[in-house]
Simulated scan of single mutants.
Amino acid sequence: MEGIISFGTKRSYEDFKKQIPTPVIPLFDSIREFCFSLGDKVIEDIRMHRVVFCKSMTFRWFADVEPEREGVIIKIQKSRKDPIQIIQIKIDQEISEITQTIKNAFEEIH
């Protein structure tokens, strides 16, 4: 018996990428690659309009990345008690401006 319970097919990043405006794809890809570079415990959760990066199977998210017409909105969560930080990155900006913030959130999530 194959697939006794099915919740539908999980979307792949390649499927999600089709809805990102073409000029934003390199920026989105570089943020995604940076999140994965943080370690083996990073899990990518593809949602309808955004990609959420979590730490391990506890699914405590540290970065919620949503494409826009002219850039990306990143919501960063360090803990459940701290307010969520929202950063907007434009196509012409370098992600080096926010990588340390993302890395700190990843390291502080329990």
Rank of each mutant, 00 (worst) to 15 (best):
residue 1 M to H: 11
residue 1 M to L: 14
residue 1 M to T: 13
residue 2 E to H: 05
residue 4 I to T: 03
residue 7 F to R: 09
residue 7 F to E: 11
residue 8 G to T: 08
residue 8 G to I: 05
residue 11 R to C: 01
residue 13 Y to L: 02
residue 15 D to S: 15
residue 15 D to G: 10
residue 17 K to E: 06
residue 21 P to I: 06
residue 21 P to S: 13
residue 22 T to S: 03
residue 22 T to C: 02
residue 23 P to R: 06
residue 24 V to G: 07
residue 28 F to C: 08
residue 29 D to F: 10
residue 31 I to L: 07
residue 31 I to R: 01
residue 33 E to F: 05
residue 35 C to S: 02
residue 35 C to D: 01
residue 36 F to E: 00
residue 39 G to Y: 04
residue 41 K to A: 15
residue 44 E to Y: 10
residue 48 M to R: 15
residue 49 H to G: 12
residue 50 R to P: 03
residue 50 R to S: 08
residue 51 V to Q: 00
residue 51 V to K: 00
residue 59 F to T: 06
residue 61 W to G: 00
residue 61 W to D: 00
residue 63 A to R: 02
residue 66 E to Q: 11
residue 67 P to R: 02
residue 73 I to M: 12
residue 77 Q to T: 14
residue 77 Q to A: 14
residue 78 K to S: 14
residue 79 S to K: 04
residue 80 R to T: 09
residue 81 K to T: 11
residue 83 P to T: 12
residue 93 Q to V: 11
residue 93 Q to S: 15
residue 95 I to Q: 00
residue 97 E to M: 10
residue 100 Q to W: 07
residue 103 K to D: 08
residue 103 K to A: 13
residue 103 K to F: 04
residue 104 N to L: 00
residue 107 E to K: 14
residue 107 E to A: 12
residue 109 I to N: 08
residue 109 I to M: 12
residue 110 H to V: 13
residue 110 H to L: 12
